[in-house]
Write a protein that binds this DNA or RNA. Sequence first.
DNA 1: AAATAAAATTAGTCTTGCCTAATTTTATTT
DNA 2: AAATAAAATTAGGCAAGACTAATTTTATTT
Lengths: 219, 219
Amino acid sequence: MNTLSEENYLKCIYRLWQDKDGEKITPTAIAEWLGNNPASVVDMIRKLTEKQLINYDKKKGVELTGQGQKDATMIVRRHRLWEVFLLEKLGYHWDEIHDIAEDLEHIKDATLADRLDKFLGFPEYDPHGDPIPKANGKMAKRHSTTLADVKPGTHCRVAAVKDTTSAFLQYLQKLNINIGTKLQLVEKIQFDGSLVISISGGERTTVSQKFGENILIDM
Amino acid sequence: MNTLSEENYLKCIYRLWQDKDGEKITPTAIAEWLGNNPASVVDMIRKLTEKQLINYDKKKGVELTGQGQKDATMIVRRHRLWEVFLLEKLGYHWDEIHDIAEDLEHIKDATLADRLDKFLGFPEYDPHGDPIPKANGKMAKRHSTTLADVKPGTHCRVAAVKDTTSAFLQYLQKLNINIGTKLQLVEKIQFDGSLVISISGGERTTVSQKFGENILIDM
DNA sequence: AAATAAAATTAGTCTTGCCTAATTTTATTT
DNA sequence: AAATAAAATTAGGCAAGACTAATTTTATTT
């Protein structure tokens, strides 16, 4: 069984692995993501390597082993299931659930996740549009195209959000954007990558490139 | 905000305070309840005293301050609400919920307990028959008469259980005893305090004194 | 290739919360 | 009251997981 801290590292590595496909995962990247000191990360890399949950090679960076992947996937499963619970059953808003799920995900019990899954009706996606791993570890594919990737003129649908901080989610709320909202990318501003978009076929708004990179879309 | 460990001590002190009314709460008693070393308890007593959550006096033993009581009550509230959730919503059995709630109770969020309370329909009692503190800290009175306290011949109803270990709860299950089950105390054996009881008006069974002391009853 | 910058690592420290062993204080017997 | 037992406390340590500061390794410039 893994400690709280170990679980957080595993989840972080899993996250970085999914996000930056191809790029190697360095101690510094982990340190930045977790807000820890690189020296601490090196300690934990040693520990997780001893536990055979990761492999570390200077050339390849950090990689999850089979077991590490399994463990990380189950943490993500728990996190996303709890998010659904908090939103659908307890009436929390979009932007409030992440931090609470961050705590709930660490509660380990042989059948808890599966019972919760059943109770919630086996949801496929969490409230941020991320796929929920099944009990066997399988999950629907993540959306990978961002609003910033498409050509001007493209019509699309918000499938998920990358960033789940409340700052971002509250901003989306203000713009009336949710999972499923229809968007059109009207124009890309050369100068700084800003995007002019039309929300639900209506009003035009300009958003930053960073904004666009955090909206995952279906076409 | 209190740490996990601090919360466990507070809950323990609260528990001992409710249980052994009158008797003072000693470091040794706390150590035994938590399975810790008395030396560790002394450390924590110092810490909680500094945080003004308890007072400690050799004569009076350990006592919760006003704030300490509030904090402890809220931990108990969360624990008992989660127990209801686990049993009613996730379909766990009586004897499986305590340990999981032990983890869930430490999750802190300004509105989580209140939302859960509402979601569950504001239950008055948890699955072990213990009253659930309300948001304002008030709660129904605990049952205090045990099966071992009454005179032979008495008819009563199981109102709650004191011991919540699965060993005890599984034993009750085997005897077909639940909250609400009608019992009659038929006879007390002088020799060792054993109790002859009739369960639901039916079969006679002999149980130990310790058993009787852990069954709280209504008459 | 040498110089510089960045990243990784080592060494040593700190806090929390636990421990054991030794000692002191308090209670209980005789 | 003295002897003994039990409880409380102090002192010193340990592991986890973080930190800072110093050093070494690797990458990037010039």
